[in-house]
Nucleic acid binder design. Structure first.
Lengths: 258, 258
DNA sequence: TAGTGGTCTAGACCACATG
DNA sequence: ATGTGGTCTAGACCACTAT
Protein backbone atom coordinates (compact mmCIF):
# COMPACT_ATOMS: atom_id res chain seq x y z
CA UNK A 1 0.00 0.00 0.00
CA UNK A 2 2.92 2.25 0.59
CA UNK A 3 3.78 2.93 -3.02
CA UNK A 4 0.11 3.44 -3.91
CA UNK A 5 -0.02 5.86 -1.06
CA UNK A 6 2.73 8.09 -2.20
CA UNK A 7 1.59 8.05 -5.78
CA UNK A 8 -1.84 9.17 -4.62
CA UNK A 9 -0.29 12.32 -3.24
CA UNK A 10 2.46 12.82 -5.78
CA UNK A 11 1.23 11.06 -8.92
CA UNK A 12 4.29 12.05 -10.89
CA UNK A 13 6.79 10.95 -8.31
CA UNK A 14 5.77 7.36 -7.53
CA UNK A 15 8.64 5.10 -6.61
CA UNK A 16 9.47 2.04 -4.63
CA UNK A 17 7.89 1.92 -1.20
CA UNK A 18 10.81 3.51 0.58
CA UNK A 19 11.84 5.98 -2.09
CA UNK A 20 11.88 9.57 -0.99
CA UNK A 21 13.74 12.26 -2.86
CA UNK A 22 15.41 15.20 -1.17
CA UNK A 23 12.53 17.50 -2.06
CA UNK A 24 9.92 15.38 -0.27
CA UNK A 25 8.49 16.73 2.92
CA UNK A 26 7.11 14.26 5.45
CA UNK A 27 3.75 12.76 4.55
CA UNK A 28 1.96 14.37 7.48
CA UNK A 29 3.21 17.78 6.30
CA UNK A 30 1.78 17.11 2.87
CA UNK A 31 -1.51 16.08 4.48
CA UNK A 32 -1.50 19.33 6.46
CA UNK A 33 -1.12 21.18 3.19
CA UNK A 34 -3.98 19.31 1.58
CA UNK A 35 -6.29 19.95 4.52
CA UNK A 36 -5.27 23.62 4.59
CA UNK A 37 -6.14 23.83 0.89
CA UNK A 38 -9.62 22.57 1.72
CA UNK A 39 -9.95 25.32 4.32
CA UNK A 40 -8.52 28.04 2.12
CA UNK A 41 -10.71 27.14 -0.85
CA UNK A 42 -13.84 27.26 1.26
CA UNK A 43 -14.53 23.56 0.72
CA UNK A 44 -14.88 23.33 4.50
CA UNK A 45 -16.13 26.55 6.10
CA UNK A 46 -15.79 27.77 9.71
CA UNK A 47 -18.01 25.66 11.93
CA UNK A 48 -18.14 22.77 9.45
CA UNK A 49 -17.10 19.28 10.41
CA UNK A 50 -14.29 17.94 8.27
CA UNK A 51 -14.22 14.26 7.29
CA UNK A 52 -13.24 11.75 9.95
CA UNK A 53 -9.63 10.66 10.37
CA UNK A 54 -10.41 7.26 8.86
CA UNK A 55 -12.15 8.86 5.89
CA UNK A 56 -9.22 11.22 5.26
CA UNK A 57 -6.71 8.41 5.68
CA UNK A 58 -8.49 6.43 2.99
CA UNK A 59 -8.86 9.43 0.74
CA UNK A 60 -5.18 10.35 0.97
CA UNK A 61 -3.92 6.77 1.05
CA UNK A 62 -2.05 7.03 4.36
CA UNK A 63 -2.53 5.52 7.77
CA UNK A 64 -4.83 7.03 10.35
CA UNK A 65 -1.83 7.87 12.52
CA UNK A 66 -0.40 10.09 9.83
CA UNK A 67 -3.66 11.99 9.40
CA UNK A 68 -3.82 12.27 13.17
CA UNK A 69 -0.44 13.95 13.36
CA UNK A 70 -1.45 16.43 10.64
CA UNK A 71 -4.74 17.25 12.36
CA UNK A 72 -3.00 17.52 15.74
CA UNK A 73 -0.74 20.24 14.42
CA UNK A 74 -3.56 22.12 12.69
CA UNK A 75 -5.50 21.99 15.94
CA UNK A 76 -2.46 23.33 17.81
CA UNK A 77 -2.41 26.22 15.32
CA UNK A 78 -6.11 26.80 16.04
CA UNK A 79 -7.16 26.14 12.45
CA UNK A 80 -9.15 23.09 13.53
CA UNK A 81 -10.92 22.15 16.74
CA UNK A 82 -11.19 18.53 17.89
CA UNK A 83 -14.26 17.38 19.79
CA UNK A 84 -14.13 13.88 21.16
CA UNK A 85 -16.99 11.70 20.02
CA UNK A 86 -18.25 14.37 17.62
CA UNK A 87 -15.59 15.06 15.04
CA UNK A 88 -13.08 17.67 13.95
CA UNK A 89 -14.36 21.13 13.03
CA UNK A 90 -13.09 24.22 11.28
CA UNK A 91 -12.32 26.85 13.90
CA UNK A 92 -14.61 29.89 13.87
CA UNK A 93 -14.49 33.40 15.28
CA UNK A 94 -18.04 32.87 16.55
CA UNK A 95 -16.53 30.79 19.36
CA UNK A 96 -15.69 32.86 22.45
CA UNK A 97 -12.28 31.21 22.82
CA UNK A 98 -11.29 32.38 19.38
CA UNK A 99 -12.69 35.87 19.97
CA UNK A 100 -10.67 36.46 23.10
CA UNK A 101 -7.46 35.32 21.44
CA UNK A 102 -7.79 38.51 19.38
CA UNK A 103 -9.25 40.77 22.06
CA UNK A 104 -6.70 41.14 24.82
CA UNK A 105 -8.49 43.89 26.68
CA UNK A 106 -9.31 42.55 30.12
CA UNK A 107 -10.98 44.28 33.08
CA UNK A 108 -8.70 44.91 36.04
CA UNK A 109 -11.31 43.09 38.08
CA UNK A 110 -13.80 40.55 36.84
CA UNK A 111 -14.20 38.40 33.79
CA UNK A 112 -13.39 39.37 30.19
CA UNK A 113 -16.39 40.79 28.35
CA UNK A 114 -17.16 41.85 24.82
CA UNK A 115 -17.64 45.61 24.26
CA UNK A 116 -20.36 47.42 22.31
CA UNK A 117 -19.31 48.93 18.99
CA UNK A 118 -20.28 52.26 17.44
CA UNK A 119 -19.33 52.75 13.80
CA UNK A 120 -18.09 56.28 13.13
CA UNK A 121 -17.13 55.77 9.52
CA UNK A 122 -16.87 53.11 6.82
CA UNK A 123 -15.75 54.11 3.33
CA UNK A 124 -13.71 53.17 0.33
CA UNK A 125 -10.50 55.16 0.11
CA UNK A 126 -6.93 55.24 -1.05
CA UNK A 127 -4.69 53.60 1.47
CA UNK A 128 -1.97 55.53 3.26
CA UNK A 129 1.47 54.43 2.10
CA UNK A 130 2.33 52.42 5.23
CA UNK A 131 -0.99 50.58 5.13
CA UNK A 132 -0.64 49.89 1.45
CA UNK A 133 2.82 48.47 2.01
CA UNK A 134 1.70 46.31 4.95
CA UNK A 135 -1.21 44.87 2.95
CA UNK A 136 1.07 44.29 -0.04
CA UNK A 137 -1.20 46.34 -2.30
CA UNK A 138 -0.10 48.33 -5.28
CA UNK A 139 -0.18 52.10 -4.86
CA UNK A 140 -3.68 53.33 -5.59
CA UNK A 141 -5.47 50.03 -5.01
CA UNK A 142 -8.63 50.76 -3.04
CA UNK A 143 -9.07 49.82 0.59
CA UNK A 144 -12.03 49.96 2.91
CA UNK A 145 -11.42 51.87 6.10
CA UNK A 146 -13.51 51.62 9.23
CA UNK A 147 -13.45 53.85 12.28
CA UNK A 148 -15.29 52.91 15.43
CA UNK A 149 -15.47 53.33 19.18
CA UNK A 150 -15.74 50.39 21.54
CA UNK A 151 -17.40 50.94 24.89
CA UNK A 152 -18.30 49.02 28.01
CA UNK A 153 -21.65 50.04 29.51
CA UNK A 154 -21.63 53.18 27.41
CA UNK A 155 -18.16 54.27 28.56
CA UNK A 156 -15.72 54.61 25.62
CA UNK A 157 -12.66 52.47 25.98
CA UNK A 158 -11.16 51.91 22.52
CA UNK A 159 -10.85 54.04 19.42
CA UNK A 160 -10.21 51.73 16.49
CA UNK A 161 -9.31 52.42 12.88
CA UNK A 162 -8.80 49.64 10.39
CA UNK A 163 -8.03 49.07 6.72
CA UNK A 164 -9.02 46.11 4.54
CA UNK A 165 -8.23 45.30 0.90
CA UNK A 166 -11.17 46.57 -1.13
CA UNK A 167 -11.20 43.53 -3.37
CA UNK A 168 -11.94 41.11 -0.56
CA UNK A 169 -14.66 43.12 1.13
CA UNK A 170 -16.95 44.38 -1.62
CA UNK A 171 -20.30 45.48 -0.23
CA UNK A 172 -19.04 46.25 3.26
CA UNK A 173 -20.95 49.31 4.47
CA UNK A 174 -21.53 51.17 7.71
CA UNK A 175 -25.15 49.98 7.72
CA UNK A 176 -24.13 46.37 7.50
CA UNK A 177 -21.63 46.83 10.31
CA UNK A 178 -24.15 48.62 12.48
CA UNK A 179 -26.83 45.98 11.96
CA UNK A 180 -24.54 43.13 12.85
CA UNK A 181 -24.01 42.59 16.53
CA UNK A 182 -21.36 39.93 15.90
CA UNK A 183 -17.66 40.67 16.30
CA UNK A 184 -15.99 41.98 13.15
CA UNK A 185 -13.95 38.85 12.48
CA UNK A 186 -17.07 36.75 12.81
CA UNK A 187 -18.77 38.89 10.18
CA UNK A 188 -15.71 38.80 7.95
CA UNK A 189 -15.55 35.02 7.91
CA UNK A 190 -19.27 34.40 7.45
CA UNK A 191 -20.14 37.22 5.02
CA UNK A 192 -16.90 37.82 3.15
CA UNK A 193 -15.17 34.45 3.35
CA UNK A 194 -12.00 35.85 4.87
CA UNK A 195 -10.84 34.05 7.98
CA UNK A 196 -8.34 35.84 10.24
CA UNK A 197 -5.73 33.35 11.43
CA UNK A 198 -3.03 35.19 13.30
CA UNK A 199 -1.77 38.72 13.91
CA UNK A 200 1.33 40.64 14.92
CA UNK A 201 0.88 43.52 17.33
CA UNK A 202 3.10 46.45 18.27
CA UNK A 203 2.13 48.02 21.58
CA UNK A 204 3.20 51.47 22.71
CA UNK A 205 2.24 54.22 25.13
CA UNK A 206 1.28 57.51 23.48
CA UNK A 207 -0.24 60.83 24.47
CA UNK A 208 -3.84 61.44 23.35
CA UNK A 209 -4.14 63.81 20.40
CA UNK A 210 -6.96 66.37 20.79
CA UNK A 211 -9.29 64.75 18.23
CA UNK A 212 -8.82 61.28 19.70
CA UNK A 213 -9.17 62.62 23.23
CA UNK A 214 -12.55 64.11 22.37
CA UNK A 215 -13.89 60.86 20.94
CA UNK A 216 -12.64 58.89 23.94
CA UNK A 217 -13.77 61.56 26.41
CA UNK A 218 -10.38 61.93 28.06
CA UNK A 219 -8.13 64.94 28.52
CA UNK A 220 -5.77 65.72 25.63
CA UNK A 221 -2.30 64.40 26.42
CA UNK A 222 -3.64 61.55 28.53
CA UNK A 223 -1.59 58.36 28.22
CA UNK A 224 -3.22 55.87 25.84
CA UNK A 225 -2.17 52.41 24.81
CA UNK A 226 -1.49 52.27 21.09
CA UNK A 227 -1.96 48.84 19.52
CA UNK A 228 -1.01 48.44 15.87
CA UNK A 229 -2.01 45.12 14.39
CA UNK A 230 -1.27 43.38 11.12
CA UNK A 231 -3.58 40.42 10.59
CA UNK A 232 -3.05 37.44 8.31
CA UNK A 233 -5.31 34.88 6.69
CA UNK A 234 -4.34 31.51 5.24
CA UNK A 235 -0.99 31.38 3.56
CA UNK A 236 0.42 34.25 5.63
CA UNK A 237 -1.44 36.73 3.47
CA UNK A 238 -1.87 40.11 5.23
CA UNK A 239 -5.50 41.27 5.05
CA UNK A 240 -6.03 43.80 7.81
CA UNK A 241 -4.22 46.75 9.35
CA UNK A 242 -5.67 47.95 12.61
CA UNK A 243 -4.66 50.83 14.84
CA UNK A 244 -6.28 51.01 18.23
CA UNK A 245 -6.06 53.45 21.12
CA UNK A 246 -7.02 51.95 24.47
CA UNK A 247 -7.85 53.66 27.72
CA UNK A 248 -6.14 51.47 30.30
CA UNK A 249 -7.53 52.81 33.54
CA UNK A 250 -10.13 50.12 34.23
CA UNK A 251 -8.86 47.64 31.64
CA UNK A 252 -5.47 46.34 30.61
CA UNK A 253 -3.90 44.48 27.74
CA UNK A 254 -3.36 40.92 28.91
CA UNK A 255 -0.60 38.68 27.67
CA UNK A 256 0.65 35.29 28.72
CA UNK A 257 4.32 34.51 28.12
CA UNK A 258 4.86 30.80 27.54
CA UNK B 1 3.45 -6.30 29.62
CA UNK B 2 0.55 -4.01 30.12
CA UNK B 3 -0.20 -4.93 33.71
CA UNK B 4 3.49 -4.79 34.64
CA UNK B 5 3.55 -1.39 33.09
CA UNK B 6 0.81 0.10 35.14
CA UNK B 7 2.04 -1.43 38.33
CA UNK B 8 5.43 0.13 37.70
CA UNK B 9 3.82 3.54 37.74
CA UNK B 10 1.09 2.94 40.26
CA UNK B 11 2.40 0.11 42.43
CA UNK B 12 -0.68 0.13 44.62
CA UNK B 13 -3.18 0.10 41.79
CA UNK B 14 -2.11 -2.77 39.59
CA UNK B 15 -4.95 -4.52 37.84
CA UNK B 16 -5.77 -6.54 34.79
CA UNK B 17 -4.30 -5.23 31.53
CA UNK B 18 -7.30 -3.17 30.56
CA UNK B 19 -8.32 -2.00 34.00
CA UNK B 20 -8.43 1.74 34.46
CA UNK B 21 -10.31 3.33 37.31
CA UNK B 22 -12.02 6.67 36.99
CA UNK B 23 -9.17 8.42 38.76
CA UNK B 24 -6.55 7.25 36.26
CA UNK B 25 -5.17 9.81 33.92
CA UNK B 26 -3.74 8.66 30.57
CA UNK B 27 -0.35 7.01 30.78
CA UNK B 28 1.39 9.74 28.81
CA UNK B 29 0.07 12.31 31.28
CA UNK B 30 1.55 10.31 34.12
CA UNK B 31 4.84 10.13 32.24
CA UNK B 32 4.71 13.91 31.81
CA UNK B 33 4.31 14.22 35.54
CA UNK B 34 7.25 11.92 36.23
CA UNK B 35 9.52 13.79 33.85
CA UNK B 36 8.40 17.12 35.30
CA UNK B 37 9.29 15.80 38.76
CA UNK B 38 12.79 15.11 37.50
CA UNK B 39 13.03 18.68 36.26
CA UNK B 40 11.54 20.20 39.39
CA UNK B 41 13.78 18.21 41.73
CA UNK B 42 16.89 19.29 39.88
CA UNK B 43 17.69 15.72 38.83
CA UNK B 44 18.01 17.10 35.31
CA UNK B 45 19.17 20.74 35.20
CA UNK B 46 18.77 23.32 32.43
CA UNK B 47 21.04 22.38 29.53
CA UNK B 48 21.26 18.73 30.59
CA UNK B 49 20.30 15.92 28.27
CA UNK B 50 17.54 13.75 29.65
CA UNK B 51 17.57 9.98 29.02
CA UNK B 52 16.62 8.77 25.54
CA UNK B 53 13.06 7.86 24.70
CA UNK B 54 13.92 4.16 24.66
CA UNK B 55 15.64 4.44 28.02
CA UNK B 56 12.67 6.26 29.55
CA UNK B 57 10.23 3.80 28.00
CA UNK B 58 12.10 0.93 29.63
CA UNK B 59 12.37 2.74 32.94
CA UNK B 60 8.67 3.57 33.09
CA UNK B 61 7.52 0.32 31.52
CA UNK B 62 5.62 1.86 28.63
CA UNK B 63 6.10 1.92 24.87
CA UNK B 64 8.35 4.43 23.17
CA UNK B 65 5.31 6.03 21.53
CA UNK B 66 3.84 6.88 24.89
CA UNK B 67 7.06 8.52 26.09
CA UNK B 68 7.19 10.34 22.77
CA UNK B 69 3.76 11.86 23.29
CA UNK B 70 4.72 13.00 26.79
CA UNK B 71 7.99 14.55 25.58
CA UNK B 72 6.23 16.15 22.61
CA UNK B 73 3.89 18.01 24.93
CA UNK B 74 6.67 19.08 27.29
CA UNK B 75 8.60 20.37 24.29
CA UNK B 76 5.50 22.28 23.13
CA UNK B 77 5.38 23.87 26.60
CA UNK B 78 9.06 24.80 26.22
CA UNK B 79 10.16 22.74 29.21
CA UNK B 80 12.23 20.48 26.97
CA UNK B 81 14.01 20.99 23.67
CA UNK B 82 14.36 18.18 21.13
CA UNK B 83 17.46 18.00 18.94
CA UNK B 84 17.44 15.38 16.24
CA UNK B 85 20.36 13.01 16.40
CA UNK B 86 21.54 14.46 19.70
CA UNK B 87 18.88 13.94 22.31
CA UNK B 88 16.31 15.81 24.37
CA UNK B 89 17.50 18.61 26.64
CA UNK B 90 16.15 20.66 29.51
CA UNK B 91 15.28 24.14 28.22
CA UNK B 92 17.47 26.94 29.52
CA UNK B 93 17.24 30.72 29.70
CA UNK B 94 20.79 30.90 28.35
CA UNK B 95 19.31 30.14 24.91
CA UNK B 96 18.38 33.27 22.96
CA UNK B 97 15.03 31.82 21.91
CA UNK B 98 14.03 31.41 25.53
CA UNK B 99 15.30 34.89 26.46
CA UNK B 100 13.24 36.66 23.85
CA UNK B 101 10.10 34.82 24.89
CA UNK B 102 10.35 36.87 28.08
CA UNK B 103 11.73 40.11 26.62
CA UNK B 104 9.12 41.53 24.27
CA UNK B 105 10.81 44.88 23.74
CA UNK B 106 11.67 45.15 20.06
CA UNK B 107 13.26 47.99 18.10
CA UNK B 108 10.94 49.75 15.66
CA UNK B 109 13.59 49.04 13.07
CA UNK B 110 16.16 46.26 13.13
CA UNK B 111 16.63 43.02 15.00
CA UNK B 112 15.82 42.38 18.68
CA UNK B 113 18.78 43.00 20.97
CA UNK B 114 19.55 42.51 24.61
CA UNK B 115 19.93 45.70 26.69
CA UNK B 116 22.61 46.61 29.24
CA UNK B 117 21.52 46.55 32.86
CA UNK B 118 22.40 48.95 35.69
CA UNK B 119 21.46 47.83 39.19
CA UNK B 120 20.13 50.71 41.28
CA UNK B 121 19.22 48.70 44.33
CA UNK B 122 19.06 45.16 45.68
CA UNK B 123 17.95 44.55 49.24
CA UNK B 124 15.96 42.37 51.56
CA UNK B 125 12.72 43.98 52.57
CA UNK B 126 9.14 43.45 53.64
CA UNK B 127 6.92 42.95 50.66
CA UNK B 128 4.12 45.37 49.82
CA UNK B 129 0.74 43.78 50.40
CA UNK B 130 -0.07 43.25 46.72
CA UNK B 131 3.31 41.64 46.04
CA UNK B 132 3.00 39.44 49.11
CA UNK B 133 -0.42 38.28 47.94
CA UNK B 134 0.74 37.61 44.40
CA UNK B 135 3.71 35.55 45.62
CA UNK B 136 1.48 33.69 48.08
CA UNK B 137 3.71 34.68 51.00
CA UNK B 138 2.56 35.20 54.57
CA UNK B 139 2.54 38.80 55.75
CA UNK B 140 6.01 39.72 56.96
CA UNK B 141 7.89 37.02 55.06
CA UNK B 142 11.00 38.59 53.59
CA UNK B 143 11.44 39.31 49.90
CA UNK B 144 14.36 40.50 47.86
CA UNK B 145 13.66 43.55 45.76
CA UNK B 146 15.74 44.70 42.84
CA UNK B 147 15.57 48.00 41.02
CA UNK B 148 17.42 48.54 37.77
CA UNK B 149 17.55 50.50 34.55
CA UNK B 150 17.89 48.84 31.17
CA UNK B 151 19.50 50.80 28.36
CA UNK B 152 20.44 50.41 24.73
CA UNK B 153 23.75 52.06 23.82
CA UNK B 154 23.64 54.04 27.04
CA UNK B 155 20.13 55.39 26.44
CA UNK B 156 17.71 54.40 29.24
CA UNK B 157 14.71 52.48 28.00
CA UNK B 158 13.25 50.48 30.89
CA UNK B 159 12.91 51.09 34.60
CA UNK B 160 12.35 47.74 36.27
CA UNK B 161 11.48 46.82 39.83
CA UNK B 162 11.08 43.24 40.92
CA UNK B 163 10.37 41.16 43.99
CA UNK B 164 11.46 37.61 44.75
CA UNK B 165 10.73 35.30 47.70
CA UNK B 166 13.66 35.69 50.11
CA UNK B 167 13.81 32.00 50.88
CA UNK B 168 14.58 31.01 47.29
CA UNK B 169 17.23 33.64 46.61
CA UNK B 170 19.49 33.71 49.64
CA UNK B 171 22.81 35.38 48.87
CA UNK B 172 21.51 37.50 46.02
CA UNK B 173 23.30 40.85 46.24
CA UNK B 174 23.80 43.92 44.07
CA UNK B 175 27.46 42.95 43.58
CA UNK B 176 26.53 39.56 42.25
CA UNK B 177 24.01 41.08 39.88
CA UNK B 178 26.45 43.69 38.68
CA UNK B 179 29.21 41.17 38.04
CA UNK B 180 26.99 38.86 36.04
CA UNK B 181 26.46 39.91 32.48
CA UNK B 182 23.92 37.15 31.93
CA UNK B 183 20.17 37.86 31.81
CA UNK B 184 18.50 37.67 35.21
CA UNK B 185 16.56 34.49 34.50
CA UNK B 186 19.74 32.83 33.34
CA UNK B 187 21.40 33.72 36.64
CA UNK B 188 18.36 32.61 38.61
CA UNK B 189 18.32 29.15 37.05
CA UNK B 190 22.06 28.51 37.24
CA UNK B 191 22.86 30.07 40.62
CA UNK B 192 19.64 29.74 42.56
CA UNK B 193 17.99 26.72 40.97
CA UNK B 194 14.77 28.53 40.16
CA UNK B 195 13.63 28.18 36.58
CA UNK B 196 11.06 30.65 35.27
CA UNK B 197 8.52 28.81 33.13
CA UNK B 198 5.74 31.18 32.19
CA UNK B 199 4.36 34.60 33.10
CA UNK B 200 1.20 36.67 32.99
CA UNK B 201 1.53 40.30 32.01
CA UNK B 202 -0.77 43.28 32.36
CA UNK B 203 0.11 46.12 30.02
CA UNK B 204 -1.08 49.69 30.44
CA UNK B 205 -0.23 53.23 29.41
CA UNK B 206 0.62 55.55 32.29
CA UNK B 207 2.03 59.05 32.81
CA UNK B 208 5.60 59.24 34.11
CA UNK B 209 5.84 60.16 37.80
CA UNK B 210 8.57 62.74 38.53
CA UNK B 211 10.99 60.26 40.17
CA UNK B 212 10.62 57.72 37.38
CA UNK B 213 10.88 60.43 34.75
CA UNK B 214 14.21 61.55 36.18
CA UNK B 215 15.69 58.03 36.12
CA UNK B 216 14.49 57.47 32.55
CA UNK B 217 15.50 60.98 31.46
CA UNK B 218 12.08 61.88 30.09
CA UNK B 219 9.72 64.73 30.94
CA UNK B 220 7.36 64.14 33.87
CA UNK B 221 3.94 63.16 32.57
CA UNK B 222 5.35 61.50 29.45
CA UNK B 223 3.44 58.42 28.39
CA UNK B 224 5.15 55.20 29.51
CA UNK B 225 4.23 51.60 28.97
CA UNK B 226 3.59 49.89 32.29
CA UNK B 227 4.19 46.14 32.26
CA UNK B 228 3.27 44.21 35.40
CA UNK B 229 4.40 40.61 35.36
CA UNK B 230 3.75 37.64 37.60
CA UNK B 231 6.16 34.81 36.82
CA UNK B 232 5.73 31.13 37.65
CA UNK B 233 8.09 28.21 38.06
CA UNK B 234 7.24 24.49 37.96
CA UNK B 235 3.89 23.56 39.44
CA UNK B 236 2.38 26.99 38.74
CA UNK B 237 4.18 28.40 41.75
CA UNK B 238 4.51 32.22 41.56
CA UNK B 239 8.10 33.30 42.24
CA UNK B 240 8.52 36.78 40.81
CA UNK B 241 6.60 40.03 40.62
CA UNK B 242 8.00 42.56 38.19
CA UNK B 243 6.86 46.06 37.36
CA UNK B 244 8.44 47.71 34.37
CA UNK B 245 8.12 51.14 32.79
CA UNK B 246 9.09 51.21 29.11
CA UNK B 247 9.86 54.17 26.89
CA UNK B 248 8.20 53.21 23.63
CA UNK B 249 9.51 55.82 21.25
CA UNK B 250 12.20 53.75 19.52
CA UNK B 251 11.03 50.37 20.81
CA UNK B 252 7.70 48.65 21.16
CA UNK B 253 6.21 45.72 22.98
CA UNK B 254 5.77 42.96 20.44
CA UNK B 255 3.11 40.31 20.60
CA UNK B 256 1.94 37.64 18.21
CA UNK B 257 -1.69 36.55 18.40
CA UNK B 258 -2.12 32.93 17.37
C1' DT C 1 29.18 2.32 13.44
C1' DA C 2 26.11 3.35 17.00
C1' DG C 3 22.81 6.17 19.21
C1' DT C 4 19.43 9.73 18.97
C1' DG C 5 15.09 11.67 17.57
C1' DG C 6 11.58 11.69 13.29
C1' DT C 7 8.26 9.32 10.38
C1' DC C 8 4.95 5.79 9.26
C1' DT C 9 2.23 1.70 9.65
C1' DA C 10 -1.35 -1.65 11.52
C1' DG C 11 -4.17 -2.86 14.82
C1' DA C 12 -6.30 -2.97 19.43
C1' DC C 13 -9.09 -0.98 22.76
C1' DC C 14 -11.14 3.11 25.49
C1' DA C 15 -14.14 7.30 26.13
C1' DC C 16 -17.59 10.16 24.47
C1' DA C 17 -21.76 11.61 21.77
C1' DT C 18 -25.73 10.37 19.28
C1' DG C 19 -29.58 7.92 17.40
C1' DA D 1 -25.37 0.15 18.24
C1' DT D 2 -22.50 3.09 15.66
C1' DG D 3 -19.22 6.52 14.64
C1' DT D 4 -16.11 9.83 16.37
C1' DG D 5 -11.70 11.14 18.45
C1' DG D 6 -8.19 9.47 22.37
C1' DT D 7 -4.80 6.21 24.07
C1' DC D 8 -1.41 2.60 23.62
C1' DT D 9 1.42 -0.90 21.63
C1' DA D 10 5.05 -3.10 18.56
C1' DG D 11 7.90 -2.75 15.07
C1' DA D 12 10.02 -0.90 10.83
C1' DC D 13 12.77 2.35 8.64
C1' DC D 14 14.74 7.24 7.87
C1' DA D 15 17.67 11.36 9.06
C1' DC D 16 20.88 13.45 11.76
C1' DT D 17 25.06 13.65 14.97
C1' DA D 18 28.94 12.01 16.83
C1' DT D 19 33.00 8.90 17.27
Amino acid sequence: MNSDTRSAIHPASAGPPTARSATFSPLYQQIKGLITQGLESGQWKPGDMIPSEIELAGRFGVSQGTVRKAVDELAAEHLLVRRQGKGTFVASHTEPRTQFRFLRLTPNQGEPRYPESTILECKRARAPADVSRALELKAGEPVITIKRVLAFDGVPCVLDELWLPGGLFKGLTAERLTESKAPLYSLFESEFGTKMIRADEQVRAVAAAPADARLLRVAPGSPLLSVERLTYTYGDKPVEVRKGLYITRDYHYHNELI
